[in-house]
Design a protein around this nucleic acid. Structure first.
Length: 588
DNA sequence: TCTGATCGCGCG
DNA sequence: AAAGCGCGCGATCAGA
C-alpha cells in the first residue's frame, strides 16, 4: 500500500494508492487530517495487520514530515522521499535519456542550485546538490515565518512528481540490472532520510560531566566569556617570551608567522605539519597551544552549551548533502567528533555502545567495481593493505597503503605518485578503473556509482576554460580539467562506498526494528536498541546489554546483505569490525 | 560595522 | 604556481 502525504489547507492531505507507477490511478478525494491528529492517524495505519505489509509513505521531504511524527512518538517503517530521489534521478546517467532531468528543472517548485558555479573556488565543481536550508531551530526568531521547515508540496505536485519519477525509473534499461540498482538506491536513500531524522531525534548519548572534567583537566577552570582559559593564557605568555614578541596573538596566523620569521624560523605557513620540521624550542609549546586552542574553540564549554542538552548531542544530518552521496551535517560538527572528546560519548546505565566500522571500505569497493581478481585475492585478508603488500610491494604495508590511496585520490607527485607504476603492474584492472574515471572527468563526461548516482556536469568554468586561446589560458584549462579528473576518479569509489553504506544502514535499520519486542514499544525507545550515529563507514548502536548479541549479529548480517545487493556474489569480503564498549574512546 | 574570503584543523 | 578526494566550523583579516 502506498500513501501520499502532502500539504493541504487546514492540515495534511492523505491519499491511498492502490498501485504505484508512472500512471497513477484516479484517486478519491483525499482525507484531510488536522495536524494535531496526524500522528494518531499515522500510528493507526502503521499498526501491524495480519498478512499485510506496512505502507510506504510518499512525501516530498522526510525532513518536513518525520521529525514531528517522531516527536509525537510515532515512527514509520518505509517511505519514499520524492525530493532526495528526484535529485538522484535528475543527474543519474541511467535516466539521462528519459528527459526527467529537463522536465524536473522546468518544475519551478523543484529547487536546485547544483549548476551554480561556486564563486570561491574556480577549480572545484559544485559541491552541494541542494541549497542550504534555513538555519536550525532558532526558537522565536522564525516564529513569524513558521514555514522555515514546513512541508511545501500539495497533493497535485506530489502526485505529479512521484509519477514522473516512476516513469523515469520504468524507462531505465534492465541490462546489468540497472533499473533494479537505481530502485535500490532510491529505497536506500529514503531509508537513510528516516535514519537521519531518527538519529537526530534520539541524539548521541553524551556525558556532559565527563566532557567538563576533560576540559578542566586540559584547559583549567571555565573562563569568563571572551577570555582564554588559564592553561592557554600561560602558554601564550610562554610563546611571547620565547619569540620576544610581547604583543603576539598566537591565534593570528599572520602575526604568528611574522614572529616566527623574526626568530629565524623560516616557515611558509603556520600549519602544524610544517612547524614540526623545525627544532626551535618554541615549537613544542606552540603545537601544544594550537591543540588546546582547537579543543577550546571547537569542542569547549561554548560547544557544550550550544549542542548538548539532556544528556544528548543532537546534530542535524544532511542526507545527500555531498555529491558522492555521503551525508553532510550542520551544527556542532557532528561528523568531526575529535578523538579527544570521544570519552564523553557514553552508554546509559544497563546499556552498551556498539561501534562498528567497515574496514578499508573504499579500496574493497574499488576491487569489486573493477572486478580485479588478483586484488580480490589479496583482499581476502582481514587486512587488505597487508594482502596487497604481500603481492607487489615486498610486504611493505605502508607503501601498499600509500599507493592505493594515491590511486583513489589521483596523486601525481611525492611517494604516492612514484608508487603508481608499481601498483599498476601488479593490479592493472583496479588502476585502469580509476584512470578511466579520471580521463572521463577531464574530458567533461559524467561518471556514475554502482547504484546509479552520477556526478553533476562540469562547472561553467570548466566549459569556459575549454575555449582558451593563449598558452596561459591553456595551462589553466588543463589544471581545471585535471582537477575535475581527480574529482571523478574519487567519485566512483567514494560514491559507491556511500551506496554500500546506505544499504548497510537501511538493512541494519530493518533488522533492529525486527528486534523490538512488543513489550518495549510503548516506552519511548529507552529500552530498545537505537541507531545513534553514522559516519560514512561507521555506525553506532546504543543498546540494552541483553540485546547486544542480537545487534552485533544484525550489523554483520546487514553488511553482507549490502555487499550482495550491490555486487551480487563476488569473491570480495566487506568485513566489519565491531567493538562493544561503554565509551566511544574505547572503540578501535 | 558588517560580510565574505582565507587559514587552519577536525573527521572519513 | 601547483595541487591526492570529500566535508564543517571558528578566528582572523580585508574590503565595503
Amino acid at each position: 500500500m502506498y500513501l501520499l502525504l502532502a500539504v493541504h489547507p487546514g492540515g495534511a492531505a492523505l491519499q491511498e494508492l492502490t498501485q504505484a507507477g508512472h500512471t497513477l490511478p484516479a484517486a478519491p478525494e483525499p482525507r484531510v487530517i488536522p495536524h494535531a491528529q496526524l500522528p494518531a492517524v499515522v500510528r493507526e495505519l502503521e499498526a501491524p495487520r495480519p498478512g499485510g505489509q506496512p505502507p510506504r509513505w510518499i512525501w516530498h521531504r522526510t525532513q518536513d514530515w518525520y521529525p514531528a511524527l517522531l516527536a509525537a512518538g510515532v515512527d514509520v517503517e518505509r517511505c519514499y522521499d520524492v525530493s532526495l530521489c528526484g535529485t538522484i534521478l535528475a543527474f543519474s546517467q541511467f535516466t539521462a535519456h528519459t528527459g526527467y532531468a529537463r522536465d524536473s528543472y522546468a518544475r519551478d517548485s523543484y529547487v536546485r542550485d547544483s549548476d551554480r558555479v561556486p564563486a570561491e573556488d574556480p577549480l572545484l565543481p559544485p559541491r552541494t546538490l541542494q541549497p542550504p536550508p534555513p538555519p536550525p531551530d532558532q526558537g522565536a526568531l522564525f516564529d513569524d515565518v513558521g514555514a522555515a521547515s514546513a512541508p511545501r508540496w500539495g497533493l497535485g505536485e506530489l502526485r505529479a512528481g512521484y509519477a514522473d519519477q516512476q516513469g523515469a525509473l520504468a524507462a531505465v534499461g534492465t541490462e546489468e540490472n540497472r533499473r533494479g540498482r537505481l530502485q535500490l538506491l532510491l529505497a536506500a536513500e529514503s531509508a537513510a532520510a528516516m535514519v537521519a531524522a531518527e538519529m537526530q531525534h534520539t541524539g548521541v548519548p553524551w556525558r556532559e560531566d565527563l566532557h567538563q572534567q576533560m576540559l578542566a583537566g586540559c584547559l583549567g577552570p571555565r573562563p569568563h566569556p571572551g577570555q582564554r582559559p588559564a592553561r592557554l593564557e600561560a602558554l601564550a605568555r610562554e610563546l611571547r617570551a620565547l619569540l620576544n614578541s610581547p604583543a603576539l596573538n598566537p591565534d593570528s596566523p599572520q602575526d604568528l608567522m611574522r614572529a616566527l620569521h623574526r626568530n629565524g624560523i623560516e616557515v611558509k605557513s603556520t600549519r602544524k605539519w610544517e612547524l614540526r620540521e623545525s627544532t626551535h624550542p618554541v615549537i613544542a609549546p606552540l603545537l601544544e597551544y594550537k591543540k588546546l586552542s582547537r579543543l577550546h574553540t571547537a569542542n569547549g564549554w561554548a560547544w557544550l552549551d550550544a549542542w548538548v542538552h539532556g544528556g544528548r548531542f543532537r546534530p542535524e544530518y544532511v542526507v545527500g548533502g555531498v555529491v558522492s552521496g555521503r551525508w553532510a551535517s550542520r551544527g556542532g560538527g557532528a561528523l568531526q567528533i575529535p578523538r579527544q572528546v570521544r570519552g564523553a560519548v557514553h552508554a546509559d546505565p544497563g546499556h552498551k555502545l556498539i561501534v562498528a566500522d567497515a574496514s578499508q571500505l573504499e579500496p574493497r569497493v574499488l576491487v569489486a567495481l573493477a572486478r580485479d581478481s588478483s586484488m580480490a585475492e589479496a583482499a581476502r585478508d582481514q587486512d587488505l593493505y597487508a594482502g596487497i603488500a604481500a603481492k607487489g610491494f615486498g610486504g611493505d604495508r605502508a607503501k601498499a597503503k600509500t599507493a592505493l590511496l594515491g590511486a583513489m585520490y589521483g596523486a601525481t607527485s611525492g611517494e604516492a605518485g612514484r608508487l603508481m607504476p608499481q601498483l599498476a603492474r601488479t593490479y592493472p584492472r583496479a588502476v585502469d578503473f580509476v584512470e578511466r574515471a579520471a580521463r572521463a572527468g577531464e574530458s567533461g563526461a559524467t561518471v556514475t556509482t554502482r547504484l546509479g548516482r552520477s556526478t553533476p556536469p562540469p562547472s561553467e568554468r570548466w566549459f569556459h576554460s575549454q575555449r582558451s586561446a593563449t598558452a596561459e589560458e591553456q595551462r589553466r584549462a588543463e589544471s581545471i580539467a585535471r582537477s575535475r579528473g581527480r574529482f571523478t576518479r574519487n567519485f566512483v569509489v567514494q560514491g559507491s562506498a556511500a551506496d554500500w553504506a546506505a544499504c548497510w544502514l537501511a538493512e541494519l535499520r530493518r533488522r533492529l526494528r525486527g528486534l523490538r519486542g512488543d513489550g518495549a514499544a510503548g516506552t519511548g525507545g529507552a529500552l530498545r536498541p537505537e541507531l545513534v550515529f553514522f559516519l560514512h563507514d561507521e555506525v553506532m548502536v546504543h543498546a540494552p546489554e541483553e540485546a547486544v548479541d542480537d545487534c552485533v549479529r544484525a550489523i554483520e548480517e546487514a553488511a553482507s546483505a549490502a555487499k550482495e545487493l550491490l555486487f551480487g556474489t563476488i569473491p570480495v569480503e566487506f568485513p566489519v569490525s565491531v567493538a562493544v564498549v561503554d565509551s566511544y574512546d574505547n572503540a578501535k
